[in-house]
Amino acid sequence: MTQFLQATVNGLSLAAVYALIAIGFVVIYKSTQVLSFAQPALVLTGAYFVSYFAFSLGWNFWLGLGLAIAIAVFLGLFVERTALRPMIGKPVFSVAILTIGLDIAIRTVINDLIGVDFRGVGSPWLGQWDWGGAVVRHAQVATVVITVVLVVGVVAFFRYSRLGLAMRAAAFDQEVALAQGISVAVVFAVAWGMAGGLAAVAGMLIGTSFAGVSAGSAFVALKALPAIVVGGIDSLPGAVVGSLIVGLAEAYAATYQAGNFDFLGANFSQVVPWLVMFIVLLVRPYGLFGTKEVERV
């Protein structure tokens, strides 16, 4: 039971990080029809700047987090305006490849800034609790709580704000949205800015781990890909549910595979998110909550 509880806590905190990144993917996709592979770079940028302000300079953690979010939002806006906007109308494949290039370029710069030393994020969540034998770090609970708050905020934004409604309209049909006086350019910019901000928070949460912030922190973002495919690439609830499925599956596999399914080899848990994605794609090609595409032929 302790083992199950430990695995569940680990899985939930993992899922929370995936969910923040996955929402960024989905918001950009819904608004621009672009699958952005630059999310790892945005995650790393946010993580680095929280670390720089709150750990290296020793500033207040929340101030550092706020500044890092602002920088990541600005970076998202900058990328959208300078690199993505000129690509409007170009094949989606070309745009996706462009985001891969952006990701590599930004990560190379940030990796250089990260340097050789350990980098924490100066978070206040350093302790741990003992819940029935399971070690629950304060940072894990903070990760889940922050994610829940942000997910509720994002949902409320899309449901109740004018801009959120405009983004939903643009996602549904850009031409009709334009006809209604909605600035699609603003929608694109807000989508990238929002993805940057969420990625920055995700990066900070990754940095609360024992390992801190490193070049490898960026790769966590790639695990959000199976999460959005499982949930449905254009569905916000799908991003959250997909992240939960993927995060918990990964954690349970890490805990129970060894000793029970040794023939699968070491680190099979790292394959599990992709395996789950594969199975879901076989059954529901558009994900659990994705919109089925209908094409007139």
Binding site: N10, V220, A251, A254, T255, A266, S269
Partner: peptide
């Protein structure tokens, strides 16, 4: 002899930690 992967997230090292 536990093989692990270079992933900087606590949960990703669960298998190694358990071992």
């Amino acid at each position: 002899e536990q093989q692990t992967l270079p992933i900087s997230l606590d949960a990703a090292q669960t298998e190694a930690i358990n071992t």
